[in-house]
Design a protein around this nucleic acid. Structure first.
Lengths: 372, 372
DNA sequence: AGCGTATGGTTAATCGATTAACCAGATAAT
DNA sequence: ATTATCTGGTTAATCGATTAACCATACGCT
């Protein structure tokens, strides 16, 4: 049934070349302008004629030519998505959310990978521009400032980054996990970051620290530095930390939390009985590992919606006043390059799972080995 | 320096509307046809004039209009990538490889998420077609057959799927891990799949079984069924399996291997001393968990290259003979819809890491609890 | 001198959709 | 009765790049 339909469609489409507006027009003895008006609903066409045109259109299997439309209107209805490093495990969520939001707004998403490199990022952006995208969503690498391009840009990083359009409130997220652990009675923390130059990670860690009162001890390690010095596969030396009294380890990503978790488990340290572990981002594996990871979830769908909406608003807006910016007078702001959204930050949600729990006092017997 | 250049470019671009070929042409007193010929290197233009035109072009910050070109040539230089479920953790690798391969071939990648649903997949495909893509790369959902569309399609699934263009040799991969474990002395296996309807997973498991001689016991469980019956967070009951003699657990994905690994570790079962665990796909976390996961890696870059190359070949080819297919005589094959590549399967690489090891005989004392 | 043939360009049509400007006929308003 | 307005369309220009067809001019060769 379904396949039948698809095949029938092709039958017609392949019969010669794909039909255009004038083909519909001549088939009905009207002008192509009328067809355009009828299908777009813009001009004045009688209701009955509209109906006839619609019918003929999908009888012929008409598909509007995006090239023709783009050429005429100057807009391609495609947005570019620039990612710092596609291999980022968070990327699927981002891409999915952006694609859905864009699709709802009638736009397509062209992707570009900047491979974490700043110059590659520049190249990626110009490739997208050449392809005629109407706007860009950029997840910037570290503190990269986006140069002046010829189209609106939405930046998704973190609220503390200047020029940020919209993002999760990473600071608040950090505060939430930290407070959760403090409430459980933890007083000695190890905070685990990866890249000390990352705005997002600094915000997350900053948020965590903000939740610590006097009387709480903590230390921070940055994995990138550590791993560069000691090699990728090195142990993080967590056992010593635990022996020295750490009871809670909070990482800036589930990826690192997982590393921590498995290292502890291999050493026979019980999570969460002896040590609580938390991550960030609610990556795909987080709910299904044992113990499931307590983490902080970001509402990527909402962030994407806000970013895309801001972008689309600016794009449609620039239609009305095409040349508001002269090169002579750059009135302070760089010609509305990076768009703004309201709200510009989206709350993060704490997901309490099994890897965090109340502190178990030293006199409580700790089981070794089998739990069953 | 770099930023200077970018800004200077904008300065000009923003000065009014972006320049086109005729602007360059009139600035130099030549015809726009000559400019086109000069920049494309196709027609006959004197070397010096070519040089002058080139210079003027990037002096004015000329960027060719992809819409104009697409309209005229009938080709957009954009390919669509249809993914079964973007949230698939393997997706970053796929997208990155495809983007790189396409970019090298001068194409852009437009993404579409089919959210695992078959009807959504159909919609996603038509959205891409409407956007004017020249071809499609489809990572199909389960055994989906791709209906007849108006453009060439490369299917990346598994060699046993009819119509498959190119993919990893999942069967061989399965055989490789299994043989590895057999060589280590394992004789009692638990094979862990997720979706019993997945061609890829069936091939992987089929490959594993093919490596088992007589005298090897194995059982297979499918998580989707299990989890649907008992709930997402359920224990997989691995402890019982181990008690019953299983010494090696092989999953069809690192995601499931990780689930297995952490469940075992939590129960105090040592990996790999008591049980070996292996996965598939070499996901981002696999090398950094403890113990690092033995897995099977696929050369996604090569697969992407082959798929894109096959697609591009067909696209360029159809340029020369535009209407080889009449709707009347469909000569057996469905008008070269899904393209073919040579080779059509790419070898998988076994990554031996720390989660697999030689069997430790029952008389060897097994440590409980702390290893240090 | 006369013919063929490179060389280096130009002219003009074309791809498909959109839209400003215009127009005929009917109806309403003064 | 005459002008204004509304309805339902049509005409033709336009977006920007490409390319087939054409046209000078110069050069080589007999």
């Amino acid at each position: 049934m379904h396949q039948q339909g698809a095949l029938a469609g092709i039958e017609v489409a392949a019969s010669r070349t794909r039909p255009n507006m004038s083909k519909i027009a001549s088939a009905l003895g009207v002008s192509s302008a009328t067809v355009s008006n009828a299908l777009s609903g813009k001009g004045r066409v009688s209701a009955e004629l509209v109906e006839k045109i619609r019918k003929k259109a999908d009888e012929l299997g008409y598909v509007p030519s995006s090239a023709g439309r783009a050429l005429r209107t100057g807009r391609s209805n495609v947005l570019g998505l620039v990612l710092p490093d596609i291999s980022n495990p968070l990327f699927p969520q981002i891409a999915q959310a952006m694609e859905a939001a864009a699709s709802n707004a009638g736009y397509g998403i062209l992707i570009a990978d900047s491979r974490g490199d700043v110059t590659t990022q520049t190249q990626a952006i110009s490739r997208l521009i050449e392809r005629g995208v109407d706007g860009l969503v950029v997840i910037p690498r570290r503190g990269t400032r986006i140069g002046d391009i010829g189209c609106p840009v939405a930046m998704v990083d973190t609220p503390s980054t200047p020029g940020n359009t919209v993002s999760a409130d990473h600071w608040e997220g950090g505060a939430k996990v930290a407070r959760h652990l403090v409430d459980l009675g933890h007083k000695n923390f190890l905070l685990v970051g990866y890249d000390p130059a990352s705005n997002v990670q600094n915000d997350r860690i900053g948020g965590m620290k903000s939740a610590f009162d006097r009387g709480i001890k903590y230390d921070t390690i940055w994995l990138e530095t550590l791993l560069r010095e000691r090699g990728e596969q090195t142990s993080l030396g967590l056992i010593d930390r635990v022996r020295d009294g750490v009871t809670a380890i909070s990482a800036v990503s589930d990826l690192h939390a997982l590393r921590v978790l498995t290292e502890l488990q291999t050493a026979g340290i019980k999570v969460p009985q002896q040590v609580s572990v938390t991550g960030f981002d609610d990556l795909i594996f987080s709910p299904v590992v044992t113990p499931s990871l307590t983490t902080v979830h970001m509402d990527m769908a909402r962030i994407a919606e806000l970013a895309i909406a801001a972008l689309v608003r600016e794009i449609e807006h620039s239609k009305s006043e095409p040349n508001a910016n002269t090169s002579q007078k750059q009135n302070g702001k760089a010609a509305k390059q990076t768009v703004t959204a309201e709200p510009s930050k989206v709350s993060m949600e704490l997901m309490v799972r099994a890897s965090s729990g109340p502190i178990i006092l030293p006199d409580t017997p700790i089981l070794n080995g089998k739990t069953l």
